[in-house]
């Protein structure tokens, strides 16, 4: 057991650093850049039942300390993932991976999860009920606690693998969403997905994104994500995976102090393809400086002022 080890829903991982879905493909292309076995695990591109091209371009816009994306769940579909992507990943990644799943109906979520449940490479199912960029699905499951619970139950019924429900921050009461998922049997909660935003091209006087709106990610959203992780971690007893604007070892530790058991890194991978390797390498030094012996000891360690 190393100093960075944590247990995520019953599976020990070497460190809490996990590239977030949509920023790491299906892993094997990053394996051309560095040995991805140094990662705790990674969350693959959001996978749906059928192949999706996603939204029309432009689907990327820059913001202060972040970016908007409106990719719209482009993916080759679950059958192609199982037939082509997972076999390509197998020689480069020898740890359980996190399969990120999206859907437009309870049946779709269940079918995709059932198919991925049969894959030995899959350690966890991360169920995205929070994509802001698709219409008539995705986030509508993520804004109504009863719907979120229904997706959780539908998925839990078809898999024995740990189910992590990925929440949207675009809600009034994030705690109610997390509790609904926990009560419906979720083994973990990950949050946050991107925040809905937009930019306008001043010269053309029209939205920069063809989709009009997109999801904001990057350091700009870190404090929002941290606050929500903090609130949710105190309200549920299942592990929480924190994400949103994480780009340094210090951010990882901050997320863990707020209550995250593991931490996903998203947009940072897109500007620095070696971001996760750098964060993992930096962690021991930052821990030494802060007097942290083992990372797992600090989970939820931030004490509220009132209690002091």
């Amino acid at each position: 057991m190393g100093r960075l080890n944590v247990a995520l829903c019953g599976i020990e991982i070497d460190n809490p650093v996990i590239p977030a879905s949509g920023t790491f493909g299906y892993g094997y292309e990053f394996a051309e850049l560095y040995d991805i076995n140094i990662l705790g695990t990674f969350s693959c591109k959001g996978t749906t039942l059928l192949p999706r091209f996603g939204n029309e371009t432009p689907r990327i816009a820059e913001t202060s300390a972040g970016m908007l994306n409106a990719v719209g769940l482009q993916n080759p579909g679950v059958e192609s993932v199982i037939r082509e992507e997972l076999p390509r990943l197998a020689p480069c990644f020898h740890k359980p991976m996190m399969a990120n799943v999206s859907g437009f109906s309870l049946e779709e979520y269940a079918t995709v999860c059932q198919l991925l449940d049969e894959q030995p490479q899959v350690g966890w199912l991360e169920v995205n009920i929070s994509c802001p960029n698709v219409h008539g699905g995705g986030m509508s499951f993520g804004t109504d606690p009863a719907m979120a619970a229904a997706v959780t139950r539908a998925v839990k019924a078809v898999t024995k693998k740990p189910v992590i429900m990925k929440l949207s921050p675009n809600v009034t009461d994030i705690v109610a969403m997390a509790r609904a998922c926990e009560e419906a049997g979720a083994d973990g909660i990950s949050l946050i997905n991107t925040l809905m935003g937009m930019r306008i091209d001043l010269k053309k006087r029209r939205p920069l994104l063809k989709n009009t709106t997109g999801g904001l990610s990057g350091p700009a959203i870190f404090p929002v994500a941290l606050r929500m992780v903090y609130q949710v971690a105190r309200a549920v007893s299942v592990p929480v995976v924190g994400l949103g604007g994480v780009s340094s070892a210090e951010d990882v530790i901050e997320m863990m102090l707020a209550g995250a058991t593991a931490v996903e890194v998203g947009a940072a991978n897109l500007v620095d393809p070696f971001a996760c390797r750098r964060i993992i390498a930096d962690l021991p030094g930052v821990m030494d400086r802060l007097g942290i012996e083992n990372l797992k000891d600090i989970i939820g360690g931030a004490t509220e002022w009132e209690k002091m």
Binding site: F24, F53, M67
Partner: peptide
């Protein structure tokens, strides 16, 4: 040319349709 996020294939921001798929 297309607006890109990462520039190296990770974000799927700059996809286009072609005869042989995206």
């Amino acid at each position: 040319e297309e607006r890109m996020g990462c520039g190296f294939g990770a974000c799927m921001g700059c996809s286009c349709r072609t005869i042989t798929g995206s």
